[in-house]
Design a protein around this nucleic acid. Structure first.
Lengths: 206, 206
DNA sequence: TATTCTCAAATAACGGCGTTATTTCGATCG
DNA sequence: CGATCGAAATAACGCCGTTATTTGAGAATA
């Protein structure tokens, strides 16, 4: 493979403009997080992986929290893409169930992102309002599926769509979080997931 | 207040034997965690608060994970005491509901312990089998309450008591975890908690 | 009692962290 | 060409977890 004239990911991306540089730095940080976990997410490691100094990171992200914030948003963006990719089909109830399975699959396949999204491994970080908004928006498909279920009569006509969404989210997250903590070993995680998510849906059946 | 002849918490506890010293060090660490959060839980800060060197901490706990492990266990021990203190009454269903409220109250009143118990703010720590066992044991009262509900006919006769316990735990924890993440602002947390925990119980009704 | 031994505790160091003040250097403009 | 400006590099500060080395008090021994 022939070497590009500028060496290093930083120099390459720098030539393409500030936006491209920022994206490249976040890609490097995301790769580091996914591959080696939150402990590898240090300013010095990211800078080293990009062949640049930490100064560049501070200019673009202010502080480490700035990078963490972007990875938080990236995690929810990936979740959103995953949920959006679930086929709608014509059975709203099955769509809801498929969204639950996709949520769990995303959490288990991207465990380090899931951790950042829920405050594990990144001590100081607290998401701002925009982060919370983006997180809620990543569940838009779920909300729409719940609405479809209400309109199709699968769920009670007076069910609050936001309450359905929040409840399903909390049910899925609760099991996954305890599973990640080692409390549901083996196949128990999947079993408990089915039980609680079905129970959550059951609360809104006619 | 007259000064004891040895100065500092360390020297005082040291005179009482190794076990007392260990307990005193953990008390200091627990106080630091509760008062200032996981960021204050550094070996140097704990040692300074005890007026001793970090060497003592390494001799008694091996490494920082050793202290984190003790605080994890302490968190679940506090939870257990809290749940055990809930009056049983004569209505098993009401006992179950009261245990849920106590679980949430404990989580919200000891947020920093709750964080350690669920992997927030302490990057490297992974609980061992004994930790998981202790965590499960802290819910013994809940398990017994579930059993009482089954035996009283409040829950289905064929309901698996462990499944009921796990499901209720995941329901409570799911809402609390998202609430802590800022996703259920204001009174929404309490409302969602009621909805999901009731739904979880509902899955096992006759 | 005087001397040695033992082991807990203190000291001080190493490397890594987030962050920032200072310096360097290349591009732009007169 | 020389001055200017700003982005990037360098190097430093004070934390962190951890550990090698030194200190010192008390037990054991002669």
């Amino acid at each position: 493979m022939p070497a590009k004239s500028p060496t290093g990911a930083f120099a390459r991306a720098q030539a393409l403009g500030e936006a491209a540089l920022r994206t490249a730095l976040l890609d490097i940080a995301a790769g580091l997080l996914a591959a080696e976990g939150p402990a590898a997410l240090s300013m010095r490691r990211v800078a080293a992986a990009a062949d640049c100094s930490t100064t560049v990171l501070y200019r673009h992200f202010g502080a480490k929290d700035g990078i963490t914030r972007e990875l938080y948003l990236e995690g929810f963006a990936r979740l959103r893409r995953r949920l959006d990719a679930v086929p709608r089909g014509d059975d709203p109830a099955e769509h809801l169930a498929a969204l639950g399975r996709a949520y769990r699959a995303n959490a288990l396949e991207e465990p380090n992102f899931y951790g950042v999204m829920h405050g594990e491994g990144v001590p100081g970080f607290v998401p701002d309002d925009e982060c919370r908004t983006a997180a809620a928006a990543s569940l838009d498909v779920l909300r729409e599926a719940a609405r479809a279920c209400v309109e199709a009569g699968v769920l009670r006509a007076d069910a609050d769509v936001d309450e359905v969404t929040d409840t399903l989210w909390a049910a899925a997250h609760g099991v996954i979080s305890l599973e990640r903590g080692g409390h549901f070993p083996g196949a128990l995680g999947e079993q408990r997931f089915r039980t609680l998510t079905r129970a959550a849906v059951g609360a809104f059946l006619p």
